[in-house]
Amino acid sequence: MYKETKLNLYRSMVRIRTFENGCRKLISEGKLPARFGMYTGQEAVAAGVSAHLDKEDEIGSTHRPIGHLIAKGCSLNKLMAELCAKRTGFNKGKAGPYHTFDPESGSLGANGIVGGSVPMVAGYALAHQIKKDGGVAVSYFGEGASNQGGVQETLNLAACWELPLVFVCENSSPEVQRMLGHEIDYPQLSIERVSDRAAAYGMPGSSHDGWDVLKIFEVAGEAVRRAREGKGPTLLEFKVHQIEGNLEGRIEAEEDEKVWCPIHNLRQKLVADGTLTPEIDDKIRKEESVDVEEAITFALGSPEPEPIEAFDDVFVEGA
C-alpha cells in the first residue's frame, strides 16, 4: 500500500474525530441545539470504505452519520452549519444530524429511522445499474438495523438483481451493552456474526475488526470492485467500539480504550514502519484543527433561517 494512501486514511480519521470534538464543545456551550450519536471509535470504517468511492458514488447513512459524511468528502463548513441549524447548512437547518443530505458529495443521506436508508441505497445502486455508469452505492447500518425487515428485504433484493451495492454493518453490540451498564437479558442477535446472514441471501459476507483501518481498506476495496464489475452486492461487518464520553478536544482515547481506537492503532503501525514522523503527525492534526475551527466560525457566523422558511420545500414548486 502506498505511503500516501496510509496517510490519507490517517488524516481522514483525525478529521472526523477533530470535527466531532468540535461538536462536543459547541453542544456543551449550548451553541449546537441537540445531542446526537457520535462516531468516535468507528472512524476507520468510514475512512477505509470511502477511500474507494468517487463523488458519483453514494452512501446511505444512519443517525450516527458524521464520520460517513466527512469521509465521503462533504464540506465541513456546511456540515457544521447544518448541525448548528443555520440557513447555510446543507439543508438550510431542516435536517440536523439525522437527515443530512449532500448530493454534491454523494452523501444521501443520514437517516433518523433505524434501517431507513438501506432500501433507498438500493435505489441509488439501481440508478447506476440502469445508467451503466460503473457507480456503486454503500449502505451503512448497525447491528440493530440488521434485524429490520427493510434491511433483510434489501439484502435479498440487491442479491436477486445483482445491484452494485456494498452493505456495511457496523456492529457495536458489546459496546451498547457496556454503555447501558448491564447485560441485556434477551440478546438482539442470536448469532455472533451479522455477516453470517450474507450466505442466506446468496452474497459474500465477512467480519473484521473495525479498529484496523488497513484491513478495512483492503476488504472494502474488494467489495467495491466486485460491485463495480457488476458481480453484485457484498455484506461486510465490522466490529466497533464506540468511544463515547467527553474527549474534551483530545484525539487520544483513554488507556483502556486504546486497543479499540483506530487512530491509535494506525499511528502505532505508521510510526513503526516510518510512514508517520512526529512532524507529519503534528502537521496533520494542526491542519485538521484549522479546518474544523474554520467550520465552527462559519457556522456560528451564519444566519438562522427566517420563520417563514419553515413553509419552504414541502413540495418542489412549479413542478
Binding site: 453514494e58 444521501l108 433507498m120 435505489g123 445502486a125 440502469i130 433484493l157
Partner: peptide, 21 residues
C-alpha cells in the same frame, strides 16, 4: 418484477428518484 417486499422496493423507488430516474 420485484420480490414481495414492499418496504425494500418502495424505498428503492425513492432512492432511484433521488438519483434522477
Amino acid at each position: 418484477d420485484t420480490p414481495i417486499t414492499e418496504t425494500s422496493f418502495i424505498g428503492m423507488g425513492v432512492g432511484a428518484a433521488i438519483r434522477g430516474l
